[in-house]
Design a protein around this nucleic acid. Structure first.
Lengths: 194, 194
DNA sequence: TCCAAGAGTGGACTATAGTCCGGTTGTGGT
DNA sequence: ACCACAACCGGACTATAGTCCACTCTTGGA
């Protein structure tokens, strides 16, 4: 028995399931872009994709899961840049420079996909902290903060200031560049041992 | 015309309205305590209070408004301790000591009323930032941080790490005292000019 | 005491997230 | 080629937040 079988899912995705998944993702992307994430109901997504509601929820769990699936591709780009890309985002630079680069890159990502991110974070209580992507950002951040007294909590606190809900609420009041600048300042300051 | 008339609400609260308000608050407090905030529907609150649904929503706006009303009394205690109480929470101590005292006191308050606070913060998107109480905490924090480059955003960032949703998610993983300790460390570190 | 005004009331109604399950269809094994 | 089985499908169903509006009752003024 070849080793690969141990990591691949037990069965291949069925052809009709794959077709439906694609149809749902395309319909959702279109509708969300046209009318905004909050103004589109799951029924509408299902109808536009030509699929039943049961199918939609079976595949994606809930609305936040659908949002997460739409973000998946973009997320991977950032994650790979962190794992394999050139410094300062990727490995090779000093921890403080990598962390600043991460905050910058994540902030860009956040600004570009605010509504989808907010949806994926706020659907059910605590949803944000259970998503795989959050775990990734948290682990990466905590490792870069490992010289501080409590890297885990410090990483959570930094990511709290980078939540879509939080930044969205502050944006009209403070503007992008002021938020970005102070996030970077706070990051530097958290990094200094005390 | 006496001056007081300018500040008092145009009319006194009607007797039946006052009775119903009390009944609703008592019923809600009891049900929330018994079954947990999330497991109680607004219909159940209305029924237990012997009141129609329309009345409930007219008085409190939505579920987060009801939660906020239940927190009101406790909030005032903290706000008055800040405005008039003895140092270091009240006026008279140095800014960094007052801020540390505030973080400690707010964290206690948060631990004591986690579920109600979470409800009052997360009912509708951005709800947290519109509540009067949040404005108060933010203004107080920002004033204490006025020696830093961007007191407004720094205050928002600190309060983000003190949101009920955030702390609730971290509690099982990190525990109260570790969170408290690192919040205080981060507060001190944000306060240092950089 | 009576009355008009309008604040207050309550329950039917809508919209939406998410569940459930009987029927259908693709798939791997023979 | 066939079959048994599991995965998949879709729409009816439930639960709940929040809206609406015709009706009632308090209240201040004449």
């Amino acid at each position: 028995m070849p080793l690969e079988l141990l990591r691949t899912p037990p069965r291949k995705e069925r052809a009709d399931a794959a077709r439906n998944r694609t149809a749902v993702l395309e319909a959702a992307a279109r509708l969300f872009a046209e009318r905004g994430v909050d103004a589109v109901s799951m029924d509408q997504v299902a109808a536009a994709a030509g699929v039943g509601k049961g199918t939609l929820f079976r595949r994606f769990g809930d609305k936040s899961g659908l949002a997460a699936a739409l973000l998946d591709a973009r997320e991977r780009v950032l994650q790979e840049a962190i794992l394999d890309g050139p410094p300062p985002l990727g490995p090779g630079a000093a921890a403080d420079e990598r962390l600043a680069a991460f905050v910058n890159a994540y902030f860009d990502y956040l600004l570009e996909h605010r509504d989808l991110l907010r949806m994926s974070e706020t659907a059910t209580p605590g949803a944000r902290y259970r998503i795989g992507a959050y775990r990734f950002w948290h682990r990466h951040t905590a490792i870069l903060l490992s010289a501080t007294p409590d890297p885990e909590h410090t990483a959570h606190a930094l990511l709290a200031a980078l939540s879509a809900e939080h930044v969205s609420a502050l944006l009209p009041e403070l503007g992008e560049e002021r938020i970005r600048a102070n996030l970077l300042r706070l990051t530097r300051s958290a990094m200094r041992l005390s």
